[in-house]
Write a protein that binds this DNA or RNA. Structure first.
Length: 268
DNA sequence: ATGGTAGGATGCCTA
């Protein structure tokens, strides 16, 4: 079985790319982030025509997460329990469309779009950190309750956990940028402490291996990227992993998302 | 030279 995660940065703008990728990737499950649409604009037939069931959670033109599967799609859950709310200037707080879970082929899959902190002193940063801590607390509880449970927390984490996960850590430090700060990295490590493993890195080691390249500044041709998309697997799922690939080819050419798909292969 | 790109309810906000 092959499971994958991909921040597509607008499903409607990327429909042809996503369909072609589904047809050539041979993936059984795809966790999608940044669909950037509501259900009424979701391209349901794209998935149905290619043999996938799909569940979507989108509230507006922002965020939006989905799971497509050809090995079953059961017990769909929109938002994780107690998912923190966010409201600009404290107004109209809402649980944003950043998490959807479903059971696919015996694996509890979560498609996650972790909030972008924007800046170290921005109000989005404490939101990001509490969002992660709340998710971690529940994820820890799921494994404690059933040590054999197979869970994949996958998506765009908006964190570069190690210095090698950005092209120039000194640039990030000098500019005071997000994604590499100690609180963000501690939030990521907390998932590891709870038993979840980054199952891609051992099969796609750095340095210089990334999942995201900014559209600006010629970041992709200059190989200046970031590793911020992860598949964090519970212990029982980790032991099934036989390989992993970051599909850097998909970042090439006109009309690419700024993120590459990340694929994990599981033993039967 | 303080730029560049790409998406969205586009002439501004988000990444």
């Amino acid at each position: 079985m092959k499971i994958a995660t991909w921040n597509v940065n607008s499903l409607r703008a990327r429909a042809d790319r996503v369909e072609a990728w589904l047809q050539r990737s041979d993936c059984d499950v795809l966790a999608i982030q940044e669909t950037k649409c509501k259900d009424e604009n979701f391209p349901w037939e794209l998935f149905e025509n290619n043999g996938y069931e799909v569940a979507h959670f989108g509230l507006s033109q922002w965020n939006g997460v989905a799971i497509a599967s050809r090995v079953g799609l059961d017990d769909v859950e929109r938002t994780f329990p107690d998912q923190p709310v966010f409201g600009k200037n404290g107004k109209d707080p809402v649980q944003e469309a950043r998490a959807i879970g479903a059971t696919c082929g015996g694996v509890r899959v979560w498609s996650l779009y972790v909030p972008n902190g924007r800046a170290l002193n921005d109000e989005h940063m404490p939101y990001k950190l509490s969002w992660l801590e709340t998710l971690k607390n529940h994820a820890q509880g799921w494994v404690t309750a059933d040590p054999e449970t197979q869970i994949a927390l996958m998506g765009d984490w908006n964190i570069a956990p190690q210095d090698e996960d950005v092209w120039d850590i000194e640039y990030f430090r000098t500019e005071g940028l997000t994604h590499v700060s100690e609180p963000e990295r501690a939030a990521f490590r907390a998932f590891e402490d709870a038993g979840y493993q980054d199952v891609v890195r051992p099969h796609a080691p750095g340095p210089g291996v990334y999942t995201y390249w900014d559209y600006t500044q010629l970041r992709f041709p200059k190989k200046e990227g970031m590793r911020i998309d992860f598949v964090m697997a519970s212990p029982a799922l980790s032991s099934r992993v036989t390989g992993a690939v970051i599909d850097r080819e998909e970042r090439k050419g006109k009309g690419a998302s700024d993120h590459a798909p990340v694929i994990v292969e599981l033993a039967d």
